[in-house]
Amino acid sequence: MLLLSLNNITKTFGGLVAVAGFSARVNRGEVVGLIGPNGAGKTTVFNLITGSIKLDAGFVFFSGHSLSGLRPHRIVKLGISRTFQSIRLFPHMSVLENVLSGCHCRMQSGLFAAIFHLPRQRREEKMVLNNAMNELDFVGLASKWNLKAGSLAYGDQRRLEIARALATEPKLVILDEPAGGMNDKETEALTGLIENIRKRDVTVMLIEHDMRFVMHVCDRVLVMENGALIAEGTPEEIQKDPKVIEAYLGVGEED
C-alpha cells in the first residue's frame, strides 16, 4: 500500500539546484534507504518531506494528504517524524522529558484542563508518561530516564532521538544518518532496533553512508546524485548497477 509519494519535487537555493524533479514512492511497512554522494540532496529531500523548507515545485502526498504548505507540526500530526544528522535533542532537559516532548502533539486536553488538573487530563498525563517510558524501554534507555539528555553517550543520544521520534506515534519515521558516529556494536544494535520498528508497523526511511548497514537493513534503496534519482532497487540490484558504481567512484572520497 502506498504511504508516501514524492512527485517531481524541486528545491533551489540561490542558483544551486539541490533537488531537481525528484520522484519516489514508499510503501507501508518498507524500510527504504536513500543514498548518494555528499551534496546529492538527500537531507534536502527529508527537509522537504517534513516541511522544514518549502517546495519550489512538485508535490508530496502522504497517506492521502497533500503536504504542500503544511507547517511542520501539522505534518508530524499526520504521522511523519524524524531524527537529525547532527543530533538535535533538548540537551538541558531530562531523557524522559525529551521523549515527552514528542508525545506533546498527541495530547488532547488543552491548557484549561492542564491548569485545573481535571481528571481527564490526569488520566492522559499518566498514559503519556507510560508511553514515554515504553519508548525509552524500546530503545533500551529506560534506566537513564532521569539523566540530562546532553550528558548521554553519543550512541545513546542517537537512540534517544529515535525514541523521541517514535513518541509522536508516526506512520513513517525518517532517520538521517542513524548510524553516524556509531561503533560496530552500536550499529549492530541499531539494525535490530530498526527491525523492531518495522514490526510495529512503522515505515522507515533512512539516509546512511555505512553501506554494509544500508544493504543489511533496507528492503529497497534509492540512489540520488545531483538532486535527482539515478537508480532504485533492492540492495543486490543497486550494488550491481553501473550508474551507482560510477556515481560513487566518480566522486572519489566517500565516507
Partner: peptide
C-alpha cells in the same frame, strides 16, 4: 515543557510536533 523545548531549538521542536 513545550515552551522550554521551543526555547532550546525551535526547528527541532517544530519537527517534534
Amino acid at each position: 515543557m513545550a515552551i522550554r523545548a521551543a526555547a532550546i531549538d525551535q526547528g527541532a521542536a517544530k519537527l517534534m510536533g
